[in-house]
Write a protein that binds this DNA or RNA. Sequence first.
DNA 1: ATTGAGACTTGATGGGAGGGGC
DNA 2: GCCCCTCCCATCAAGTCTCAAT
Length: 594
Amino acid sequence: SADCVLSNESVLFTCFRTSSPKRRQKTRKEQKERKWEEERSTDGSKWRFLEHKGPVFAPLYEPMPDKVKFYYDGKPMKLSAPAEEVATFFAKMLDHEYTTKDIFRKNFFKDWRKEMTSEEKTKITDLNKCNFSEMNEYFKAQSEARKQMSKEEKQKIKEENERLLQEYGFCLMDNHKERIGNFRIEPPGLFRGRGDHPKMGMLKRRIRPEDIIINCSKDSKHPKPPPGTKWKEVRHDNKVTWLASWTENIQGSIKYIMLNPSSRIKGEKDWQKYETARRLKKCVDRIRTQYRDDWKSKEMRIRQRAVALYFIDKLALRAGNEKEEGETADTVGCCSLRVEHIKLYPKMDEQEYVVEFDFLGKDSIRYYNKIPVEKRVFKNLQLFLENKQPEDDLFDRLNTSILNKHLQELMDGLTAKVFRTYNASITLQQQLKELASDDSLPAKILSYNRANRAVAILCNHQRAPPKTFEKSMQNLQTKIDEKQNQLSAARKQLKAAKADHKASHDDKSKKAVELKRKAIQRIEEQLMKLQVQATDREENKQIALGTSKLNYLDPRISVAWCKKWDVPIEKIYNKTQREKFAWAIDMAEKDYEF
DNA sequence: ATTGAGACTTGATGGGAGGGGC
DNA sequence: GCCCCTCCCATCAAGTCTCAAT
């Protein structure tokens, strides 16, 4: 386990220098991908030179045409521009369930009133008496009109967007032109939290140049604020990676403009993340032995730590930081689990010592799972639950800071989330091994998706079944049925052609037989493809693959798998993903081992 | 130890571009 | 050539984790 103590930094440099001698032969790539090979500073600075044009602001508010009326208590009422703007935010959402929720309405009305003139404030005292329906219809008509635009008009908009992208969407960092992730400032609107958010409906205010801190290098051409405005500050901090920041008014947190995942600075960090997970691989046995041992500790805090770590490792739970009550939706992770979130069953069906988890995790996504645990874990949990109320913490002697401090001692750079990365990637690698086959290309891709799916299930990456799911499934089934009919029809034709040939023995009929054979083969292939598609889609109904693919799976595993099985990388990663994983595509050979 | 600011990663969602099937 | 449907991508919220002040 000496490997475990190596710092990330040294591993990084080692990899850069030794990883891929073959790259020498790649000519086009070589010029493009040089950035992965450059020396990195060791003093914590993230760049030496940074130049950009600053953010793009949200378009200014365009007042409603006079004919579009707002009604209060049944009577038309002209609103002041600021009040009208906020009213339109609500009007746009009228069809959404949000606007029927009490908290949403309350928060909205409170913030809306702040934008009103004193007369408006006196007059408008009850949201229930407000009628936004004309505004709502106006916006619907607008979006309809947008859809109906001519090709030329659409083209013009596209070109304008492209121009904006070219001008503001890139920066110069050290020697590379890099794509910026989010160069557009978020427009004002009504805050929509996820789940039961106490702040839903609050006004997300418009961001002005005076709110923006610019970060760039001193010797660069500084971005200019729009005419007549000033930046809040221009600083030159090369210990951070962001280009601009502002404080958002709902939670008071800072938002950033940063580079695209394809950038050197993000790619390297991503790479480093997987290298840390690989170091965990080398010492995970030792760590597991230790936490199992700690289940027997005479100290309560150590037992809690050990059981929590077991959950994080086995179930890929998130760390679970504490949250300020009333500021966000009530969600939890491992360390913040409460008594009410688990149930213990000494016996359930055929199994012993079953723990049932039921809680809301990140984004208020429900985590529901029943798992049998070892007796010692079960007994510990019973102990932790003693004399507690449902709303008490399960791990009252533990938090993420204590846990991570402990993990840091076990391995340099180890934190709770590394287990998620490690378990996700190792699961993919194992599954791909098991699923390896010399099947057709679609079958191989189904295998890959299944491996990906196993990870998504582990990480509880869910999605709402697409609204059109049932219908599109039916459509697919219809296609399959049709294809099957086509196949039997083709088979009959082949039979007939054969009979024909037998009778005549001429060249023409021989050719006909061959043609029919080919046709059948083609139809069979098409049918297979459809069936694979159906299986894949059905299994994917409530599972989202994207998040794990993008954030948890070491891309080198996938690249290697593609090389090994002769699957074009394009079948696994789309263009954006290939850009993000350029470093891995460049680096991994077919024998790569996570 | 506790708190909070700050920086950065991870997450679900929905609109719309564009590709495939008829 | 049209339409439908898929998938891509932007969006922006919500996590994790570090660091420094108290």
